[in-house]
């Protein structure tokens, strides 16, 4: 252990700076939640009131009665619960095949798949929209979910992770007569639990927050997702800011809760994906 004398001045300076940074970081969240519970009188006032003196749920009631936020909420919950497991299933199965299967052209195929990572999403945006339109999947859950399910990056990370699982386990299962599907479900997936949880959290957050794609393919009011609905009511002139911020809170709060519960996995995931390069 390297020991260094650290002056009290330095300690105060460092911690003071970190506390300041934390306040700056947390203020928008605090302000969002606080404002969403205020009455209009307390929202439009200077100096601003940090804690509402009278807590009202009217903004939230308006959200569901006035601008019909129920449907977007339901849509987003459905999408964020269906997309992650499907995405993990597809990517991890491919990742398993690319790390443990023996077939001709395996490495070449993986390389080709990795090549698609160079293509920015914006380039495929318009044609992907046309494909979805052609398949009659505009304004459907399928149209929102399916195009984003498979990612070259995810397949690659799954492949790297599964490579760490010893071949002997798989071989002995094969000798016992297990087929690849059984091995995948009974051995590979259970042994991948930490990575699985990380992937799920990331996929859930990604699906919950997704904006540009749902904005484009879900133009029917009944198919709006939460972020799209927030962007629409925020754009409506004269809408009460309390109601809009109640909508924002509804988008942000569940993610904050999921993140706080699963933070260990998220932080590990970031470190893992970064260090692989």
């Amino acid at each position: 252990m390297r020991k260094r004398k650290v002056g009290i001045v330095q300690q105060i300076f460092v911690h003071g700076f970190l506390i300041l940074a934390s306040i700056v970081t947390a203020t928008p969240f605090f302000w969002m939640i606080s404002t969403s519970f205020k009455t209009p009188q307390e929202i439009y006032t200077i100096p601003p009131k940090f804690i509402p003196s009278e807590i009202t749920l009217k903004n939230y009631v308006d959200l569901f009665k006035g601008v019909n936020f129920g449907r977007p909420l339901l849509n987003t919950i459905i999408i964020a619960l269906i997309a992650p497991p499907l995405s993990i299933l597809l990517n991890s199965m491919a990742g398993y095949a690319f790390s443990k299967f023996r077939f001709k052209g395996r490495e070449l195929l993986m390389l080709l798949i990795l090549g698609t990572m160079m293509i920015p999403g914006q380039m495929t945006l318009i044609p992907a929209y046309l494909v979805v339109r052609f398949l009659n999947m505009l304004n459907t859950y399928r149209g929102i979910i399916i195009p984003g399910l498979v990612g070259a990056g995810s397949i690659f990370f799954w492949r790297q992770f599964i490579k760490g699982i010893p071949d002997e386990i798989i071989e002995s299962a094969k000798i016992d007569g297990a087929n690849e599907l059984l091995i995948y479900f009974k051995i590979i997936l259970p042994l991948s639990t930490p990575f699985l949880v990380t992937s799920f959290v990331f996929a859930f957050i990604g699906a919950w927050n997704a904006f540009l794609w749902p904005l484009i393919v879900a133009t029917d009011e009944r198919m709006y997702t939460l972020p799209v609905a927030v962007s629409i009511i925020a754009g409506q002139y004269g809408e009460n800011i309390g109601t809009i911020l109640a909508g924002s809170t509804l988008v942000v709060l569940p993610i904050l809760i999921v993140f706080l519960i699963a933070q260990k996995y998220v932080i590990r995931g970031i470190a893992m994906t970064g260090l692989k390069f």
């Binding site: 970081t25 904006f211 939460l226 993140f259």
Partner: peptide, 29 residues
């Protein structure tokens, strides 16, 4: 020598997991 590392790290990381759309509304306010 830094105290409360996990707390600070968590807080500074927080904005990145939230919806840009929702957060932008608060910013503009």
């Amino acid at each position: 020598e830094t105290y409360f590392k996990n707390f600070f790290r968590l807080l500074i990381y927080l904005p990145s997991v939230t919806s840009t759309i929702a957060v932008a509304v608060v910013w503009s306010w």
